[in-house]
Computed example of a mutant assay.
Amino acid sequence: METVELDGLRIAYQRVGQGPPLVLFHGVGEDSRIWRPQLEGLSDDFTVFAWDAPGCGASDDPVPDFSAEELGAVTAGFLRAAVPEKPHLLGLSWGSMVALELFRGYPGLPASLVLASAYAGWAGSLPPEEVERRYAQVLAEIDQPPETFVAEWLPSLFTDKADPAVVAEVSGIMADVRPAGMRALLSASGRADYRPVLPTIDIPTLLLYGADDQRSPLNVAHELHRQIPGSRLSVIPDVGHLAHMEAPDAFNTEVRNFLHGIAAG
C-alpha cells in the first residue's frame, strides 16, 4: 500500500501496472481489496489505482459528520496527489456516488466515467421508503459486530450461481468494516441525490450492470442511461451487484473495450 496525506487525513491505495491511469472507487463496507480481479486483469493496459476510501481499509477515519462536499474535496485531493495524469474513474455502487460527487465539484478532473452497479445516490434512484429502509439498516448495523450482519448482505450482492470462494473472499473483506468509517460515509452519502448532476456529464460514460442486480436493478440503469448524455449501457448476464467479482473477465472486457474506444476515438 502507498499513502498520501490530505489535510491530516491519510489515504491508502494500491497502484499496479503501466499505461493510462484508471482509478477505482469501491463500495461501502469494502476497501481496495475488493478490486483484486481488476488490479490483476487490467494492469496490463492501465496504471490501476484502487484507494481505501476515508474510514475504510488502511485509510484514516474522517470526522463522523463527514459531508458530501468534504468527500468530494478529499477525492479531488487524492487524484491530484497520487495520480499523475487526468484519470479514468470507475466507481462501484457507493463508489459511483464518489465519482458523481467528484464530477459535481471538479468536472475538469476526470477523463471518463465508468459507473458500475451505480445509483444517482440512493435518493436519486430509489423510492423514498427504500432510501429510509437502507439508511435505518446501516445505522442500526454500525455498532454491531460485522459477523452479525455481513452474511445478511451477501445474498443481495451475488446470484446463487456465484463461486463460493469469491463470496467468502468478499465476506472476509466486509468483516473488516469499521464503525467510524460507516458512520462517516453514511453521513456523506446516505441521502444523496445526484439527479441534477447527470445531464451535466459531458465526458465519455459507461454504465455497467449485472442483469440480476437486486440492489441497483436495471430500471435504475436505464434511468441513468436516459439522463446522462451520450452514455453507453452494458449489461452482463446472469450476475448480481458485484458483477466485477462474479464475472471478472466479462467486466474487465467491457471496461477495457470502452477505454480503448475512447483512446481510439
Rank of each mutant, 00 (worst) to 15 (best):
W35C: 01
D61S: 13
L218W: 05
Q214Y: 08
I236E: 01
D60C: 08
L224Y: 12
N252S: 14
W51V: 00
G29K: 01
N252V: 12
G121M: 04
E69M: 14
V150Q: 00
T253W: 06
L102K: 03
V170Q: 15
P110G: 12
T200E: 14
H260V: 05
A165Y: 09
L208C: 04
L90N: 11
A162G: 12
L22N: 02
Q38F: 05
Y13H: 00
D7V: 03
I142A: 11
E85G: 07
Q14Y: 02
N257M: 09
R15E: 13
H260N: 12
W94E: 11
P146M: 04
V239H: 04
V4L: 02
R33T: 05
S59F: 05
R256I: 08
Y13C: 03
A76I: 11
A99Q: 01
P204E: 06
A68M: 13
G17I: 12
P110N: 10
F25H: 07
P54N: 13
T148G: 03
A188W: 08
C56T: 09
S112R: 05
Q137L: 12
Y106V: 04
L126W: 12
V23G: 00
E101S: 03
V138Y: 10
I34M: 09
S171L: 10
G105I: 07
G265I: 11
A58N: 08
I203K: 09
D60W: 07
E129A: 10
G121W: 04
T253K: 12
F25W: 12
H26E: 02
A58R: 07
L198F: 14
L22C: 04
R226V: 07
P21M: 07
V114A: 08
